[in-house]
Design a protein around this nucleic acid. Structure first.
Length: 479
RNA sequence: GGCGCGGUAGCCAAGUGGUAAGGCAAGGGUCUGCAAAACCUUUAUUCGUGGGUUCGAUUCCCACCCGCGCCUCCA
């Protein structure tokens, strides 16, 4: 059984083992959100895949040091906060609160560090000074500082972009005169009137950092000059990550990132998600549609991260049923094992993962180790569920075996971060009136007064509750 | 135009050089007074199209069609 997580590396295009260079702790960086609006479910697809990645890495026995930045100063944050007449820090702080709420409700692990660009101006300036000192950056005619791509021959390797194919011309109008080359990008942007008070002092005058430099500065501050792994949405491959490589390696002369991990975009109803198409959803929109964050999470991780995932409402309905199914199997296993599981995260991380310890869920775990193949893992999970149910039915599920199978299920649920609905009856939550009707219906049923029983059942249903009969009574669940 | 990723049942989605996981939906069944719930079971001779390699391809090669992403600040 493979013990190491294998993952596609964008740079080499090959499957590579996920490794900690120091042999101890995986240091990885994820490009986080820009704090100017509510994050949408497409953003969360990426963050959720990264969350599953981290879970699987840790559960496979590899501790992590996870850094994810927040971009709290760039064009959009400045423009919008100015439009609102709001202080930039207050503006971005509001969106950070919203983002954190969404992350929590999606059951995402918190990164160990969440640095913000504004809080690391000094580090960014220092990095730019280093590049200036090496002749890899220059002051443009507009007072901004640019990276000199001609000094970094490896530019374009990640995105397999031949410098000659860079589309040039019309799109970039006047500002090209400020730069030596059309491909050079801004490290530091000179203050403009429309920026309002949002500028900082620097050796090149007041201004603000360019977008790319924050990730170089902050990732290296928290993780060192060479990161084990770096992740983001595919759209960041060029130019963002390409520029990060140029800035970082240009400054340090060391490899910046050993393993690149990119997540493909989410589509909605077969189209690119965009505001103009009206198909851009936030987590709140999903909740307003009557679905839970757990269901949303299931949908967003259920596709392979390398393939476009087509989101539709029906996916949420399917997820709801799938989660219920898993919950019922978990309940079955708890019962067969003689009590609920009490596995802690550390426990799970350190545990042996073999056929003997995971039972029928072992293939699902292997699927996760193989390039984070969540769809295959889910398929194997349900196959294992069938087996467990069959054994239970046949009476061939002794407590020792149930304990093993449950370990397998618990590991998979922890890997995927799935939170299962509580399957227990909610009878005591039903309003007294509903309970009374249901009780009367039960009595009518016992008296074989079918007409009256059915009438009362309809009344209960009309109040939004469903009667589930047992041999010796009934349960009430919300319908 | 360049680079990259895809096109598998009604929908979502794995996968393999030897004849297609799983989820949802749908049909049938067990259970039930009838239901609901739960469980069992059935459903792609076929994997965008056309060629080629092979004893054999959905899986490898070539061409074409379609979708999506990036090509300067969008996860």
């Amino acid at each position: 059984m493979t013990a190491t997580l294998m993952l596609m590396d964008t740079m080499s295009g090959e499957l590579k083992p996920v490794r900690a260079a120091d042999g101890h702790r995986l240091r990885f960086y994820c490009c986080g959100p820009t704090l100017y609006d509510r994050a949408h479910i497409g953003n969360f697809r990426t963050f959720l895949v990264q969350d599953v990645f981290r879970r699987v890495a840790e559960l496979s026995g590899l501790p992590t040091l996870h850094v994810r930045n927040v971009t709290n100063v760039e064009d959009k944050t400045i423009r919008r906060s100015q439009e609102l007449g709001e202080d930039l820090a207050a503006f971005t702080a509001r969106w950070k609160v919203a983002f954190d709420q969404d992350c929590r409700s999606l059951n995402m692990l918190s990164p160990h560090h969440e640095p913000g660009a504004v809080e690391h101006i000094a580090e960014q300036i220092a990095l730019i000074e280093t590049l200036m000192g090496k002749g890899m950056a220059y002051l443009g005619e507009d007072g901004s500082v640019y990276f000199r791509i001609s000094e970094f021959p490896a530019y374009g390797r990640l995105s397999r972009l031949d410098a000659r194919t860079l589309r040039s011309g019309e799109a970039h109008q006047s500002d090209e005169y400020d730069r030596e080359s059309i491909s050079d990008f801004a490290l530091w942007k000179a203050a403009k009137p429309e920026d309002g008070p949002n500028h900082w002092e620097s050796p090149w005058g007041p201004g603000r950092p360019g977008w790319h430099i924050e990730c170089s500065a902050m990732s290296m501050k928290y993780l060192g000059p060479t990161l084990d792994l770096h992740s983001g949405g595919v759209d960041l491959v060029f130019p963002h990550h390409e520029n990060e490589i140029a800035q970082s390696e240009g400054a340090t002369g060391k490899p910046f990132t050993l393993h690149w991990f990119h997540v493909t975009h989410l589509m909605v109803d077969g189209a690119k998600m965009s505001k103009s198409l009206g198909n851009l959803y936030t987590l709140d929109d999903i909740k307003a549609m009557g679905f839970s964050a757990a269901e949303m999470r299931y949908v967003l991780i259920a596709g392979h991260y390398r393939k476009p995932l087509n989101f539709k409402r029906e996916s949420l309905e399917a997820a709801r049923l799938a989660l219920k199914r898993l919950a019922s199997v978990q309940a079955l296993l708890d019962q067969a094992a003689g009590g609920p599981a009490l596995a802690t995260w550390d426990n799970l991380c350190g545990a042996e993962k073999t056929q003997d310890t995971l039972g029928h869920f072992a293939p699902a775990w292997e699927a996760l180790l193989d390039n984070l193949n969540v769809p295959k893992a889910l398929g194997e999970v349900f196959t294992a569920c069938h087996e467990v149910e069959r054994m239970s039915r046949d009476g061939s599920l002794p407590p020792e075996q149930a304990v093993v199978e449950r370990q397998g299920l618990v590991l998979l649920l922890a890997s995927l971060g799935l939170i299962l609905p509580v399957p227990s009856p909610e009878a005591d939550e039903a309003p007294g009136e509903v309970q009374q009707l249901a009780q009367q219906r039960w009595e009518a049923k016992q008296a074989k007064n079918w007409g009256e029983a059915d009438r009362l059942r309809d009344l209960v249903a009309a109040r939004g509750w469903r009667i589930k009969d047992r041999k010796d009574g009934f349960d009430l669940v919300r319908s």
